[in-house]
Design a protein around this nucleic acid. Sequence first.
DNA 1: CAAAAATTATAACAACTGGTCTACATACAT
DNA 2: ATGTATGTAGACCAGTTGTTATAATTTTTG
Lengths: 188, 188
Amino acid sequence: MNEKESTKDKIIKTASRLFQMQGYHATGLNQIIKESGSPKGSLYYYFPDGKEQLALESLQVTAKFVLDQIVDGLQKSSEPVMAIQNLINDMAERFEKEGCKGGVPVASIALETSLISEPLRNACQLAYFSFQDAFTQKLISSGLEENRAIELGIAINSMVEGAFLLSFTMGNSQPLRMVAKQIPVLLK
Amino acid sequence: MNEKESTKDKIIKTASRLFQMQGYHATGLNQIIKESGSPKGSLYYYFPDGKEQLALESLQVTAKFVLDQIVDGLQKSSEPVMAIQNLINDMAERFEKEGCKGGVPVASIALETSLISEPLRNACQLAYFSFQDAFTQKLISSGLEENRAIELGIAINSMVEGAFLLSFTMGNSQPLRMVAKQIPVLLK
DNA sequence: CAAAAATTATAACAACTGGTCTACATACAT
DNA sequence: ATGTATGTAGACCAGTTGTTATAATTTTTG
């Protein structure tokens, strides 16, 4: 039972990685199959609705992974300024090490599919909201007023996503670093 | 001579729009040809290097258009806080009217091509740098110290790009609005 | 062991991809 | 008028896309 699910998991894991790196349309089912070492028959057995379903489940895996990373990072420090700043700097560090080859987690799928697939768009929306809410909850738990915490959660999420996109394109972690540096001034 | 260049311009204009809306890989040459009303022969006459060259020139047109929009918006008010805030709110307003169908100007191409085409990646980088620099120059011209202005230019650019991406995915201009609201606190 | 269910293996599908090629028309120079 | 770029027009190519259908195989169950 454990090993049997691993075929589906292998497909999702590989698809997750490729969609993130190359985007939705540039990633072919054949490539996913080949790189995951799984047979093509299995793909439509596990994902009868085809590419869209596979992308959806892959995205959910990716989103959960990123969210865990954010939540864990924010827990490391009780003080929100430090916590958020360290989280972003950790992202920058990881980015520098991996050489930006990893792509931008949710954005690549969001941009390509939001206008052509409502289920995928919705999954991206949920993912982004979960990120945003992680920031907001951290701020609330440190005593910030709720409405202000929501505002800041949205703004910080925007900053981080934008900085990630820019760092990826520039091939340089500077945007992430600069955004981290502004966190103290933004939070008072 | 005037009318003849309009064929190339028509192709670029159509391509520019489609790449922005659908992304690089989802936009086929045939679609560009059909929607622009130009024959395929002309495409490879004007763009002998094919899709990559067409995308590059289209991106440059898009980038210039966006930059002009930023520069014009920033000129409307001498005070940088108001200027930037109004610019972002104008973006939000436009976004609400167009119903987010327009896509995200540079990001869609940046994400899809940065890892597979160095010329395109570089064009995206230049585009983003020009946006960033517009903010920085505005801040410098209002008396801000240069290093701080550069830092803030990068951060504001990140915020705006991120908010645009989030607004697009959420189908809601709230992220843009919230980012605009934080500009005063960010600029002290 | 046999029956049933779960999974994998192929082959084929129509539709499309980016790109090439040649034929044709128009304009402009000499 | 004639020759030469410039530009138009579209058929055509090999390769790939996502998807489907069916057959073979393995695994699980009775």
